[in-house]
Design a protein around this nucleic acid. Structure first.
Lengths: 215, 215
DNA sequence: ATAGATGGAGAGTAGAACTATCCGCAGTGG
DNA sequence: CCACTGCGGATAGTTCTACTCTCCATCTAT
């Protein structure tokens, strides 16, 4: 198929498709003559993935390019792809090093040791957690620090199930794509479901702590 | 104190402080003469809150303004503030209405009914969840849909504890600020901790499913 | 043969978040 | 008293991102 059809089938403008081609988010089509090309189903699929990561996952074009490069490099391990995805999702936080940061780092290290988690020192999540805890301390709020253990306890079995669901896939391409989607869309899904659960819990509390509405 | 000191104590440039004043993120200082003003501790605190929401929470300047306006309007209820915060955090997703969206909506409604959650139809999280589920279906992945119940089951007690921790605060100002910080920074914290848990779970699985590293 | 895509490249645009420059007045040290 | 640095307020300029537009020399279908 040609750009016009690719555009029609994905809802992405031809101009944007050309832009994504230039930026390397989309592989070039197969040449049919020196200056004509044709695109296949894999382009449709890839383009939809790109839009999902950008629109729903909130990744930048550059971040998406990096993630997809990791997905395409089929010689790298799954954890590499996940690392790239997490980098794109969490961004590069500014490295400050004050008292609050140090205390936050210690708090997290203790937690990791206590629960026996196996995380590498370069895990992008680690930096992000430390920064958030430090920020929260600087603002004088202890709500998050107080809930840290609860978060870890809750997320541990959840993460196990997520990883289990992803590796259950048959071929590598599928595993990798599921991992990326699960990481990016899953984060959004959890965040959004959490706000729903907040409203529900808050309504419950306000109405006298009677869990189900009727029955 | 005057801008220079406010700038020094918060690490925000004078130019940015002026910008935030113009945009209404920061209330004007107290006039000491027709064209001089002085700022207090509350400005320091507010400015730090602004930077936390923007830098760590990833909110836009406009979103931050809206959230702070809700925080300041002390006649509105807590759930109003939370609604504004969730709006700023989740953004306004494009309203598409195809088969996938409809199925996703049904899937979520069933879940809500099954668990007896009390969420209003206008909850911003609802739109976001539906959009993510629909996107995931369009991409042909069923990983998220399969985990939906697990997510809900996991988040329900977590949300209850979070709401409990927030309302345990004494005065309203404190409750509101904790709620905002808990929502925004908590989302980031969960997301980051989750990636750590993923790495840990993945390492566990790779090394033969022996949960703790040693012992 | 000709009207309408197409590929490729470069320039242009819109929005967000600052950042810089000006100007007239304020407060302060000498 | 007065030079001088700082301040507030307003406007204009900058940088970055993610497109979007315009060309033009083909190519393709009719």
């Amino acid at each position: 198929m040609r750009v016009a059809e690719l555009s029609r089938r994905t809802g992405v403008s031809v101009a944007s498709i050309k832009y994504y081609l230039r930026e390397g988010l989309l592989p070039p089509g197969e040449r049919t003559s020196p200056n004509q090309a044709s695109y296949g189903e894999e382009h449709v699929r890839r383009l939809r993935l790109v839009r999902a990561l950008i629109d729903v996952g909130g990744l930048s074009v550059a971040g998406t390019r990096d993630v997809l490069a990791a997905v395409d490099a089929d010689d790298v391990a799954l954890h590499h792809v996940l690392g790239a995805t997490q980098d794109a999702l969490l961004g590069e936080p500014a490295a400050t090093d004050d008292d609050a940061t140090e205390r936050a780092g210690k708090l997290l290290d203790d937690l990791v040791a206590r629960r026996g988690w196996r995380v590498t020192p370069t895990n992008p999540g680690r930096r992000a957690v430390v920064e958030i805890l430090a920020t929260s301390e600087r603002l004088g709020t202890d709500v998050l620090a107080g809930l840290l253990d609860t978060y870890a306890e809750t997320l541990e079995p959840l993460a196990r199930r997520e990883v289990g669901a992803v590796v259950a896939r048959s071929d590598r391409e599928d595993v990798v794509e599921s991992a990326v989607l699960g990481t990016v869309l899953g984060a959004g899904l959890i965040s959004a479901l959490r706000t729903m659960a907040h409203e529900s819990a808050s309504a419950e509390l306000a109405s006298g702590a009677a869990p189900p509405p009727e029955g």
